[in-house]
Simulated assay, not measured.
Amino acid sequence: MAEEVLLFGTWGSPFSRRVEMALKLKGIEYKYIEEDITNKSAALLKYNPVHKKIPVLVHNGKPVAESLVIIEYIDETWKHHPILPKDPYERANARFWAKFIDEKCLAAIWKSCFGEEKEREKAVEEASELLKFLENELKEKRSFGGETIGLVDIAANVIGFWVGVFEETTGVELLTKEKFPKLSNWTNEYVSNSFIKENLPPRDKLIAYFRNRFGIPNASK
């Protein structure tokens, strides 16, 4: 019996894109279903009644929600090209940093760029302090996964690509080479990796989307 793998997502979501990267890294065939988050489909609401959010992976009729949970499910279901380390300590460490990105960094980055004006300066400071932890975690490695792309690299795609989009949209500076040399090198390598590049949304379209969403005029050239 052929396996059926469906992915409900949104083109501009870093959370959808990280699941697609995991699927493509493993070479898994899947059907992608684009969701309109302002008008969610009955199928999405049926498969994720708790959060009513994308992404949702449906494997042979069984739904799995939350991007990091989905990536672990993919890694445990299809064993080739491992995404999480085999060693229990390294595995726990990877989970810790992926969660740190989602629960700590993202909120501070979002507030820095799109929060209320009076709170932005403080949010930029907070985001910088949090990004410093990631800078230190990279040490001398090419990627968070060592030599290969792993869970933390896939989770950090929001820093590798979306932060640059946020900066260009709003003019806020977060990830400078002076402050974060290792993270900046990782970002450059990450977005120039051919596998990653072909799985990222069009940058111009994303910038236009955020400018439109937050009523930000085009920056003068």
Rank of each mutant, 00 (worst) to 15 (best):
N188W: 05
L84Q: 03
R18G: 10
E135W: 11
R17A: 08
V58D: 12
P49A: 07
F180Y: 06
T38S: 15
E20Q: 15
F144Y: 06
N48L: 10
L45V: 00
L106N: 06
W186M: 05
E90L: 07
S128C: 12
E34Q: 11
L23K: 07
V19T: 11
N188C: 12
G215T: 10
R91I: 07
D36L: 13
T38D: 15
K179G: 06
A219P: 12
L45C: 02
L138N: 01
T187H: 11
I33N: 00
C113V: 05
I159V: 09
N136G: 07
I196V: 15
K197S: 10
L7F: 04
L151K: 06
A123N: 03
L131N: 08
L206W: 13
N218C: 06
S184F: 06
S220R: 08
V158C: 02
F96M: 14
V56P: 01
T148V: 09
L175Q: 06
K79R: 05
L6Y: 04
A108Y: 02
L175C: 09
F161M: 14
K31W: 00
V5Q: 09
D75C: 14
T169V: 04
E168T: 07
V165T: 13
L151Y: 13
F133R: 11
E34D: 03
P202T: 01
D153F: 15
L138C: 05
N60M: 01
F161N: 09
D153M: 13
F195P: 05
W186L: 11
E76K: 12
L138T: 01
F161C: 12
K52N: 10
N157R: 05
A43C: 11
